[in-house]
């Protein structure tokens, strides 16, 4: 076998603590795509919740810490569009006043990927084989589609793996999470999630897929008892391409 490529997994807080099965699936997928996975155990949080609440000093500390942990690797993959956006888009902005840190942030940003974009564009992985057809709809998480511009890659992967996607009327309408927004403004947040789930149920598929653990836990919080299952793209892909 040729020398395998190494990639660091930044698993994200929510996946680590709440939906670890997404992390497991991510590792499996990366291995199937021919990569060795490292998990630097010192990692904690990218700082996004603090950044979004206006606690800049705390966000900066966590950003620097994350840069130190991940900069030795060739590539960093996150099973979360919004945490990937934090590193890719916000770190360089957050640290722009400190020349050296800004430079290091930019270097890390350049080798950081959201999972589906890594699998398609960098690993050039395509699920191969005969897969059972799954009917699903895909929720574009806000930061991933608007700030990273990644909306094609997850759909490509799902379709190659036998997913039959029926689009919702507004696939990129926010699910209502928005981090602390979801508990600061729970009435509005829940109404937004309700609208999202209504749209997803309207297309008549079994599964609503998203690439963000935040959206995942938000939508699951109101989806119990509804006709649709909410799943992370990693677990869906891992299962059908097993």
């Amino acid at each position: 076998m040729t020398q395998s490529k190494r990639v660091a997994l930044c698993v994200t807080c929510l996946v680590d603590q709440v939906v670890p099965e997404v992390g497991v699936a991510t590792v499996q997928l990366l291995r199937r795509a021919g990569h060795d996975v490292d998990f630097p155990e010192a990692q904690t949080c990218c700082g996004q919740p603090f950044y979004n609440s206006g606690f800049r000093d705390q966000a900066i500390d966590l950003a620097k810490r994350t840069i130190e942990i991940f900069e030795p690797f060739d590539a960093v993959v996150l099973p979360s569009g919004s945490c990937a956006t934090m590193i890719r888009v916000e770190y360089p902005h957050l640290l722009e006043e400190w020349h050296e840190w800004h430079h290091r942030a930019t270097e890390l940003a350049e080798k950081t990927y959201e999972l589906s974009e890594f699998l398609v564009n960098r690993a050039e992985w395509s699920p191969e084989g005969e897969f059972e057809q799954v009917r699903l709809t895909y929720h574009d998480s806000c930061h991933m589609c608007r700030l990273l511009g990644v909306n094609d890659e997850p759909r490509q992967l799902l379709e190659r793996a036998g997913g039959r996607i029926t689009e919702m009327s507004e696939s990129d309408r926010c699910c209502g999470f928005g981090g602390l927004f979801s508990v600061r403004m729970p009435e509005v947040s829940n109404a937004m999630t309700g609208e999202k789930l209504r749209q997803a149920c309207d297309v008549g598929v079994e599964t609503l897929v998203t690439s963000d653990p935040g959206c995942l836990t938000q939508m699951r919080g109101l989806a119990e008892g509804s006709s649709i299952k909410v799943e992370h793209i990693a677990t869906v892909l891992e299962e059908i391409t097993r």
């Binding site: 603590q17 709440v18 939906v19 979801s182 947040s189 699951r220 919080g221 109101l222």
Partner: peptide, 10 residues
């Protein structure tokens, strides 16, 4: 989160 159930830690 009112009627929305918060996720538990795994």
């Amino acid at each position: 989160a009112l009627e929305r159930q918060l996720p538990a830690l795994a």
